[in-house]
Design a protein around this nucleic acid. Structure first.
Lengths: 143, 143
DNA sequence: TTAAACCCTCGACTATACTCTATGGCAAGG
DNA sequence: CCTTGCCATAGAGTATAGTCGAGGGTTTAA
């Protein structure tokens, strides 16, 4: 079974433009062409594109994804380097998740404030405090 | 207590350039200027900048952050809109976290593969499959 | 009072990741 | 055979989020 770029675009939720762009960036060296120069995708290609989107979705820059793909093209000799790339990336993901969770808690705190029965009062007070902070320092009130 | 842009940059881990850029984008309408036109930050300003980085770190585009800040400047009358913005954003964060977790599992699966005692064999096999997939479809072998 | 260290704006430049247009070749159905 | 639709490349354009340099005013400390 082989697929045209259009079919792959539908299957992967990537636009045709993006697929061609990725190819231009060296992310799809594994995609063969037919006699007419058309990209001809196989199932194993889809697997690799899936891996690429996995890495992209977790925030890996295309440059690094390219390194990983280069490793894949090189075969088993690059396993150690692939491990290094993915392990480093794994750490980055976890750190990022942690950071986001902390920030989410602060957003939840705000939501709690806005959802309180005396929200108007609290928000007004907050603004009064900010204004006072300006006035006390001889600054114009921007509110 | 007031702070210069340099001090704020140190405190917030944002560059001076970024702070000025944010101001230019309308994210810091609450920052007053002194007689010489210098930005003069108060503690309440730092609080708001903290909120901005919270939203930015969780992936909110500057355009939307600006809407939120505009709400804050408007006072208590915008509470409903702030709630709407933050609630929507909260959903987006959670969806994103879920997606990342799923992708992380796949990366972990790869790492497990590369860490297996017979990793070389498995990776070789994988590549053989991919090659066979090409050959079976009359395509050139890109590996 | 003057030099170093800051601050300002404006506008140009960079990086990343697409997105689209122009131009032209190939392919499948009527 | 020819039109419609899909494929190709090159290169320009867009969006987002900064980053920086030039030119010029301000503050501070020796």
């Amino acid at each position: 079974m082989t697929y045209t770029i259009k079919t792959v675009a539908e299957k992967t939720q990537l636009s045709i433009y993006t697929l061609r762009f990725y190819d231009k960036q060296g992310l799809l060296p594994f995609v063969s062409r037919n006699a007419a120069g058309y990209r001809t995708f196989t199932d194993s290609d889809l697997q690799l594109i899936h891996t690429i989107t996995c890495l992209k979705n977790t925030g890996m820059p295309l440059k690094i994804i390219r390194q990983y793909i280069d490793d894949v093209m090189q075969g088993p000799s690059s396993i150690a380097h692939r491990q290094q790339l993915l392990t480093t990336h794994r750490q980055a993901i976890l750190a990022q998740q942690q950071k986001i969770m902390n920030n989410l808690h602060e957003i939840d705190f705000k939501l709690q404030l806005y959802g309180a029965s005396n929200a108007v009062e609290l928000v007004t007070l907050e603004q009064q405090y900010a204004k006072a902070d300006k006035v006390a320092n001889g600054l114009a009130d921007p509110y």
